[in-house]
Amino acid sequence: MSEKILLNSSDIERVLVRIAHEIVEHNKGARNIAFVGIKTRGVPLAQRLAKIIQTMEQVDIPVGSLDITLYRDDVSSLSFKHVVQQTNVPFDITNKHVILVDDVFYTGRSIRAALDALIDLGRPETIQLAVLIDRGHRELPIRADFVGKNIPTARNEEIKVYVSEVDAVDKVAVMRQEGGKNEHA
């Protein structure tokens, strides 16, 4: 398996600053917006985006974390199962503009699960999707509002996002495996 670095630490920082500006532009300011990161690596990305906008706009922006395990469409199939983690959205999302954040946007199934999970918590004014990497191969009619980088991939490649809060390093790498079907992101 070969690994190729696509983004380094400062690339990721620049991408996040750009997305933050796009979010503020799109929402005409930062009032009434909230971030919800999808576990695991969407959470630190959401926190970083919120911090950038907080500094830019001088407003407090709530950040929550969402575990989508219980909403996946493959739980009771006889394949694999994930360890359930805690969802922590300590604010009311109703009537807020919620920016959902994930690291890699792939089949769209995680986002489908996240939308269901989010809607169980309240009725946001809008839900917008921000992703660091869009690698294509959608299986559902879902699109992202804010994309860090589009990276066309083959299905036998794996995109791995490392964030310092979880992995002690910031980088995005592509890994090529010979044959074999990848897991759904």
Partner: peptide, 22 residues
Amino acid sequence: EIADGMVEILARDVKKVPTLRG
């Protein structure tokens, strides 16, 4: 560890997830 995640669901207004639907 999984029970910790379930405790959060019990604290919600809408105590229902679709995991074991069907």
